[in-house]
Design a protein around this nucleic acid. Structure first.
Lengths: 246, 246
DNA sequence: CCTTTCAGTGAACGTGCGTACACTGAAACT
DNA sequence: AGTTTCAGTGTACGCACGTTCACTGAAAGG
């Protein structure tokens, strides 16, 4: 044991190369070949390595906040999880709040990807509803951590992060309103479209939160409920002008 | 100054009698009469005093969580705000989580009071909607702190508190479903009533959160939106069975 | 009147926190 | 080859935290 330490200076502390990577999980993990991995992959530039650590920090934060929320996340926890010394955190983010804002951006990236999926093909109303709910459920499953983060920080402790989440949702809602305008809704005002959009987004958020915390076995029930609710809302919107005399 | 301290032993540290009371704000604060207040109100039993401190703790917690959430609330902060020494906290609650659960109970007490208000008189559908939104807005204004607490901790950091909030909402939703059953909704299944109830409660929660964070000047807009949405939902529900063949 | 109860005190502890500072060593640049 | 850049290191600091323990003194109760 002690003899082995004579050559190569076995360092106890972690180096940039020992950074824990969580996301990609490379394939091809056959039994180790002749050549050590560290020599098979030499071309990693300094900025590549930095980006890798940044990702590791974001992933660690995403995982750690799952229990405590961003408010209960400490710089030191993140650093330990990533495998760097606490002060090194500052090379990537000015503060936990900055980290939070980056996570908001990233999480809404996932959300936008979902929307893109939903927009592909737009048949009958009923089919739009079915497809929307399916896509939502699927994305919540695949992006659990991101959706959970958004749901938590929407009313969370950090004002800047909270506001950022809300701004994104408002933007999102406006986008849906313009989408709705393309449907055959006879001469709706922009205001009314926004109101409808707000209702739908709210219902979608509630559904996401429910999926997040529910037992996966209950997912069909939740999807059924979401579909029904969406349908109720749409039917209501279509009949609203005529049947509701103020 | 120093002379005055000779008799009566002017104590620097706070005693139970200096506990900061926030809630009741007694009336009748005429200029001090001949007799010191401490002698005009001698009959305060030990348990009364304890209850008073307990209230002060709850109120202080309610105020302090407004910035940071329950997760960011420390026993020492609360104690300082109340005017007791940190360890005295344990005379009233086992932990911050227990405090949180007490606040959940109290907050939903306020919510139930609101429901009671809403139920008084049940005229036409349109009037029910108007009245419901008015009562909601009014109660959110009057019970800002409690509603804010619920909204925050619904997805907050402490699992027991979070679960308690959700349980209360589920209960609440079930209650609304039985209320809805009394309306003339032709042979709806219990399941469908629950789905509708879930949708309405969700929309109400969203509205509350919006009122909480919005400028008071925007309240009319928000109320208009809430009314419209509620109406859309109800109209949709009424027309749903017939016009949505899946 | 004497005893018990108990809300509140005050000192002390160990821990984890954010942040400052000076540093190292390899990659990047000239 | 020589210099600069900079991600990550390691120490050290002061602070706020939760919790422990022995205590005090007035109200409650026999």
């Amino acid at each position: 044991m002690t003899a082995a330490a004579t050559e190569g200076q076995a360092r106890e502390h972690v180096t940039p190369d020992t950074v824990h990577i969580r996301a990609p999980k490379l394939v091809g993990d056959e039994p180790a070949t002749l050549i050590p991995v560290t020599e098979t992959t030499p071309p990693e530039s300094r900025s590549d390595k930095k980006e890798r650590t940044r990702r590791a920090i974001l992933d660690a934060a995403l995982t750690l906040t799952e229990d405590t929320g961003l408010a209960g996340l400490s710089l030191r926890q993140v650093a330990k999880e990533v495998g760097i010394v606490p002060t090194a955190f500052y090379r990537h983010f000015d503060s936990i709040d900055q980290l939070g804002l980056a996570l908001v951006e990233e999480s809404f990236g996932a959300l936008r990807a979902m929307i893109r999926d939903t927009r592909q093909g737009s048949p009958s109303l009923g089919q739009i509803v079915d497809r929307s709910v399916d896509v939502l459920a699927e994305h919540v499953r695949d992006q659990r951590a991101h959706f959970g983060f958004i749901a938590r920080e929407k009313s969370g402790g950090s004002a800047p992060v909270r506001d950022a989440v809300r701004r994104e949702f408002a933007y999102f809602e406006r986008e849906l309103a313009t989408d709705l305008a393309r449907l055959p809704m006879e001469h709706w005002s922009a205001d009314d479209l926004r109101i409808l959009s707000n209702l739908i987004v709210g219902s979608m958020i509630a559904t996401s939160e429910e999926i997040l915390r529910a037992d996966p076995r209950d997912l069909p029930d939740i999807k059924h409920r979401a579909r029904t609710q969406l349908l109720m809302v749409i039917v209501g919107a279509l009949n609203w002008k005529s049947s509701a005399p103020s």
